[in-house]
Measured scan of single mutants.
Amino acid sequence: CHSECLGNCSQPDDPTKCVACRNFYLDGRCVETCPPPYYHFQDWRCVNFSFCQDLHHKCKNSRRQGCHQYVIHNNKCIPECPSGYTMNSSNLLCTPCLGPCPKVCHLLEGEKTIDSVTSAQELRGCTVINGSLIINIRGGNNLAAELEANLGLIEEISGYLKIRRSYALVSLSFFRKLRLIRGETLEIGNYSFYALDNQNLRQLWDWSKHNLTITQGKLFFHYNPKLCLSEIHKMEEVSGTKGRQERNDIALKTNGDQASCENELLKFSYIRTSFDKILLRWEPYWPPDFRDLLGFMLFYKEAPYQNVTEFDGQDACGSNSWTVVDIDPPLRSNDPKSQNHPGWLMRGLKPWTQYAIFVKTLVTFSDERRTYGAKSDIIYVQTDATNPSVPLDPISVSNSSSQIILKWKPPSDPNGNITHYLVFWERQAEDSELFELDYCLKGLKLPSRTWSPPFESEDSQKHNQSEYEDSAGECCSCPKTDSQILKELEESSFRKTFEDYLHNVVFVPRKT
């Protein structure tokens, strides 16, 4: 048989008469490798580009789960590009990614509803959504962080984005990388972005840091009482949809009607710091009717980097990364020049730590249904340095008659930039024990000054392991946590139920 035959053949030295091919099969003959313009397919066939392209389009058009959109890589027609490569849609070739590779997620039936953290986790790592997304989240724990972890990498949506009755959302900033909504599939009414009845939605994105392009379709905003109209108009300008909307697409009466839409800028007039305090004062603000001013709200939190936005980490279910302080308005003076500047002394802060701070007014709604208010920009203030805590785990070892090696770990709280350490030492008198000992005694162990690591005695271990207080009263049991108490109650309830079950099964009433 021919060298490319495997198993047997019907005619000697003829690659077209093989029972099976050793390498690849091409047009009725066995070959060692697939010549151009053919590609290896499933490690035994040679196919042309049209064959591989037909497989790709067949799966793409069917949208069946589990099928493969075949691509070409290293002269092979394979189910998908290997790690580190992405497909070129024009020629199906796998090309190296520039940075992290995109991950295209194809949605069944063309859309997916995100109504819980669990459903959001199914899209973790996706960068391109081939379909439409509907966000409908009523509640949950730590929602802002969970949504950002699972949806934060999405850069492109081919269909539309719909935010509907998501009472738990305060902001859409968890879509931190969303840059493009194509609108290839539109919501009824030709809408590519749809926001309806979101009672706590206050911000779409921080438009000073976020760009969003909507290729096709219109915007729809109705019944978002805490979303200011200025935020919607800003989205029109940034996304390129200005002029597409009709009169009733953006409701003037049901958007922002319960919001404090600040239209003035508060400026800080005085800032002073110490290692654990920050004193702030800002310019006074009074609405047209000074009785509408209820006070100020001061927001602050630790910020290692200057990239904080107002609604980071917030949701309507209680999660809030900001510390909020309510401040009463100052006494009002008739003389504008003698107006008191409101302020606040922030206490209990960490030394040498940068804080993000902003302040906003708290006002009631005027009778004319106009909203007044003022808010400052987010500023960054760093507390002063102070003395560091003591170095940890000092170790001293003498390696000769004239040297001592000293080692330690950095302090747990540096409280500033540590530039150097101060080492103090003092000579001590020799131990009298060394002169009084009889060095001729056998088995004498000389006193040693070398360091030995501390260890816990058996008594201390027994005390720590004991669940009861000892007789001397030195140790006591740790208080039980809520989960331990709940577990004990469940076990007790189970024992009672099981005992009742045994009584009912074992003891049967005697027939009379």
Results as ranks from 00 to 15, higher is better:
Asn263Ser: 11
Ala374Pro: 05
Asp206Ala: 14
Ala316Pro: 14
Ile327Lys: 02
Ile327Arg: 07
Cys228Thr: 02
Ser192Cys: 06
Leu266Gln: 04
Gly343Gln: 13
Glu231Asp: 15
Arg176Asp: 15
Ala149Leu: 09
Glu368Asn: 11
Thr185Pro: 14
Ser366His: 15
Ser400Phe: 05
Val128Leu: 15
Val104Thr: 04
Ile250Glu: 15
Gly373Glu: 02
His341Phe: 10
Glu262Phe: 03
Thr118Gln: 01
Tyr191Thr: 08
Pro342Asp: 07
Trp286Arg: 14
Ile395Ser: 06
Arg369Tyr: 15
Arg281Ser: 13
Thr353Gln: 10
Leu331Thr: 07
Asn200Phe: 06
Leu186Glu: 06
Leu227Gly: 00
Asn150Ile: 03
Lys277Ala: 07
Lys360Ile: 04
Lys360Val: 04
Gly217Arg: 09
Leu153Asn: 07
Leu279Arg: 14
Pro304Thr: 08
Thr383Phe: 00
Lys350Asp: 15
Gly131Arg: 01
Gln203Ile: 03
Glu246Val: 09
Ser333Thr: 11
Trp282Gly: 01
Asn387Leu: 10
Leu212Asp: 00
Phe311Gly: 02
Ser192Arg: 00
Glu236Thr: 15
Leu180Ala: 08
Asn255Arg: 08
Tyr194Ile: 10
Glu237Gln: 13
Tyr305Trp: 13
Thr127Trp: 05
Ser173Asn: 10
Phe221Gly: 03
Asn307Trp: 12
Ser260Val: 07
Ile134Ala: 10
Lys234His: 07
Ala259Asn: 07
Leu161Ala: 05
Arg247Ala: 09
Pro330Thr: 05
Asn399Trp: 10
Ile214Ala: 05
Val397Thr: 06
Tyr285Phe: 12
Val170Cys: 12
Ile135Tyr: 01
Thr127His: 09
Ser208Tyr: 12
Gly343Pro: 11
Leu406Met: 05
Ser389Tyr: 08
Tyr300Trp: 07
Tyr300Lys: 04
Gln258Phe: 08
Gln203Met: 08
Phe358Gln: 09
Ser321His: 08
Gln382Met: 13
Thr118Asp: 04
Asn130Cys: 08
Ile157Gly: 00
Trp205Thr: 01
Lys209Pro: 10
Ala316Leu: 14
Val359Ile: 15
Thr118Gly: 15
Leu161Ile: 15
Trp344Glu: 04
Pro410Ser: 15
Lys409Arg: 14
Thr215Trp: 07
Glu184Asp: 09
Ile232Ala: 11
Pro351Ala: 11
Ala251Ile: 09
Ala120Asn: 01
Leu143Ala: 13
Gln339Arg: 10
Pro336His: 08
Phe268Pro: 06
Gly125His: 15
Leu108Thr: 08
Ile188Ala: 02
Lys226Asp: 04
Ile188Glu: 05
Ser132Pro: 02
Thr361Asp: 02
Leu196Ile: 13
Tyr160Glu: 03
Leu345Cys: 10
Glu237Val: 01
Asn399Ala: 14
